[in-house]
Amino acid sequence: MSRTVRAGELVDTARFEALSREGCIDEWRRTIGGHSLKYVSVQFMRSALAYEAQIKAHGGHSRAVRKVLKAALKTDQKASDAGGRSKSSLQTALRPGTHLVREWNGRTYQVEVLEDGFQMDGKQYRSLSAIAKKITDAHWSGPRFFGLG
């Protein structure tokens, strides 16, 4: 059972584990608001809902973490404003051997970063966009599809 304890308070996150897709969507709209994304997996929604419950019970990140996040955002914005191409820290971490994982329509895809491209299911690709197109049969920004940009 997934439970988080802090300052004597118990937050039951296990209740989200049993929710169906429709139950997740209803709870998402009630607690997070707006509309759930069409292609968001049930497991992701369950995790996000549990996280939101913990945030509501215990508050968000510490002041120190918020300060570091704000500083990183400012640095990234300054690079963009200066005309430089902004790169996330994830993009700069794409070294050979790195594995990217993406769930799409109930299947998990794993991509390995190579020196000269990417590999998925034993086949080599020049770009993440080519892999995203292979997976979805639609044009996607590969870095965006894999959560890198």
Rank of each mutant, 00 (worst) to 15 (best):
S80P: 00
T92P: 01
V111W: 01
E52Q: 15
Q54A: 14
L114E: 00
G83M: 02
M45F: 10
K56S: 14
E115H: 02
D76P: 00
D76C: 11
A48D: 01
V65Q: 08
V65F: 05
G97H: 04
G60C: 07
A71R: 13
D76Q: 11
G117Y: 00
G59C: 04
K56E: 14
R107W: 12
T75N: 15
H35E: 14
D116H: 08
L73T: 14
Y109N: 14
S41V: 08
L114S: 00
L114W: 01
K38H: 03
G117R: 02
S86Y: 01
A79S: 04
G84E: 15
H99T: 09
K38Y: 03
T92N: 10
G59V: 06
Q54F: 05
V42D: 13
F118N: 02
H58G: 08
E103W: 07
Q54W: 12
R95N: 12
G60L: 05
A71N: 06
P96Q: 13
G83H: 00
N105G: 01
L94K: 01
Q110K: 15
S62A: 15
S88M: 05
L94I: 05
R66L: 14
G34N: 08
S89T: 05
H58L: 08
H61N: 13
V101M: 10
G33K: 11
I55F: 03
G117K: 02
R95I: 13
K38N: 05
L49P: 02
A71Y: 02
R46Y: 10
F44H: 07
I55A: 10
T98H: 10
G33N: 06
L73Q: 15
A53F: 01
N105R: 12
I55K: 13
L69K: 11
L114K: 02
F118A: 06
G60E: 09
D121R: 07
T98S: 14
G117P: 04
T75D: 12
K74F: 01
T98V: 10
S62D: 12
K74Y: 00
R102E: 12
A53G: 05
E115A: 09
V42T: 13
S36K: 02
S36D: 14
L49D: 08
Q119Y: 00
T98P: 03
G106R: 12
A79H: 08
D76F: 07
R46E: 02
Y39G: 04
K78H: 04
G59A: 05
S36W: 03
Q119F: 00
I55Y: 05
V65I: 13
A82I: 00
E115G: 03
A64N: 13
T75Q: 12
K70P: 02
V40L: 04
S41N: 14
A71E: 09
K78T: 06
G117Q: 00
V40G: 05
G117L: 01
H61E: 12
L37T: 11
S86T: 07
Q54Y: 08
Y51E: 11
R85W: 14
K87P: 01
L94F: 03
V40W: 03
Y39W: 09
R95S: 13
F118S: 03
G60R: 10
N105C: 07
V40Q: 12
G84P: 03
S80R: 15
V42A: 10
A71C: 04
R107I: 14
S47E: 10
S89H: 07
Q43H: 11
P96I: 00
L90Q: 10
Q110T: 15
S47I: 06
V113F: 04
H35S: 11
A72F: 03
